[in-house]
Design a protein around this nucleic acid. Sequence first.
RNA 1: GCGCUUGUGGCUCAAUUGGAUAGAGCAUCAGACUUCGGAUCUGAGGGUUAGAGGUUCGAGUCCUCUCAGGCGUACCA
Length: 565
Amino acid sequence: MKLKSHINHVIKDAFVKAGIEHEPMSVSEATKPEFGDYQFNGAMALSKQLKKNPREIAQSILDALDLTGILAKAEIAGPGFINLWLNPLWIATQCQTAVHDARLGIEVRENPMKVVVDYSGPNMAKQMHVGHLRSTIIGDTLANLLSFLGDEVIRQNHIGDWGTQFGMLIAYLEMKDEDGSVSLKDLEQFYKDAKAEFDANADFADKAREYVVKIQSGDAHCLQLWQKFIDISLGHCEEVYDKLGVNLTREDVRAESFYNDALPKVIEVLDTKGVLTQSDGAQCVFLEGDEIPVIVQKGDGGYLYATTDLAALWYRAEVLGAKRISYVVDARQGGHFKQVFRVAKEAGFVSEDVKLEHIAFGTMMDKGGKPFKTRDGGTVKLIDLLDEAVVKARETINNKEEYSEEEIEVLAKIIGIGAVKYADLAINRESNYIFNWDKMLSFEGNTSLYMQYAYARIQSIFRKHNAPIEGDIIIGDALEHRLATMLLRFEDVLERAAVDASPNQITTYLYEMVTLFMRFYEQNPMLKEGVDEKTKMSRLQLADLTAKTIKQGLDILGIKVVDKL
RNA sequence: GCGCUUGUGGCUCAAUUGGAUAGAGCAUCAGACUUCGGAUCUGAGGGUUAGAGGUUCGAGUCCUCUCAGGCGUACCA
């Protein structure tokens, strides 16, 4: 239900009827229940242009307003606000439709867009660490969201599988002379060992350097070793994706190496366009207003990540045909993307109508506000963090005796992983994020468990009711009115979150909606004695729509729900 | 130095993109239980939105300056 847009239409009609030729601004949700459900603030903005008192303008809009359909009441307040009340009958009908619809009344986009979402992007030489968490889950949420709304989403995992370090790594893998399944269990250790060998053994170091060249020139033996290494390393990532419940597969991988052959072509195109400048031996693109150039080829002929990114942009725009390309990458790379995007457009790798965006996010911090590290100062492996989350989640489960060991295992996974994801997605992605176990595993406040609890409670009511639910939704009191309106806002919230690529708009909405439900639930009994059948059925359906909205919302965030906690 | 970015109750975060009296949770204090699962709900106190100017009907939000933090800053990604 595009609620806002429906109300905007009513306003627009009033504008036409009142003879106001300006395009009305959009209505917004009322800031307080006393001010109705929605408010229109456009009268003040128009007052200068029309050279009229804002209250007079508001009055003329009000006089022309159709109060027979969506809207039931409208009032002028303050300097010229128009407060709008929705028609309870209309709300009820819409909720009724939504609760019986698999998509909860949310339309599939009429004009789907082809969108590339670039996220996760682990380095194959290392194990995934906490720094990859945010990119992976924010990107996955964005992809889920756009795809739910009807866009054609192409997930891209731009893994780092190319570069000088791989010469050393495969030379070491060869030296170990085994299939890698043992030695590559811990990539961190493997890297350290290889480096130690590199520093201590001159022959090995020579071989490592030789292997770098050999991989790049397509030597079969070295490529085979390299492939084996990448397969095992990627397998580690997939284990993490699996635990996280992230929708990334091998088909989504377009590694750095994938663009290798296109790199000379990138330079050639830049040269043809005449934007290439040689500076200190390197091939550079100088952008107007920027002091630092984009270096696309090193003095020794090697290519850089800007070159690969340009090739990737070309591939995504021209081959894949994307009209929106979203990079979910750490905010610290803002400068890099700003430059690369400019070069891509100026050199024509990407046409003007393609939207390029850097979905930046802040760094993960510990409780003290410092970068998140292990006790001895090392990076925290993502897999360890997730395993710890499951262990901690298990501790929060009450009444363990009611469940089998297997059930507890499943529950702990859903709760633990869900908590980690929700806590991250619930804050504005651009600010730094303070990681706090106690907070994320709490049942209070804007946490995944509060949502889970509400969901489970509703399911519990249905188990108890255990009979068909029929009849109409009837908006009985102010609280039901607010809850129903809130439920109908879901699509507007999703649309907005999609435009801004900000998952926290979804979590904020879910939290407010669930809070409203909890209040409704305290005040409006369903199965208790003395509730007449019609009211009971109506309330059960509101509860049902609430549960379905929670489930759908969490599903977009990549979080599962459970019927029993 | 230059550039980007952030600054909101003790703490962690919101604020519908310029709208009404800046909202939540935690913590503190006070209430509601023979519970449709109290892992809940109700209420109270706590704010000059870092500071100073400006723009306008209206500013946490936009502009300028100051202060404080974070990040980036030529051949790593």
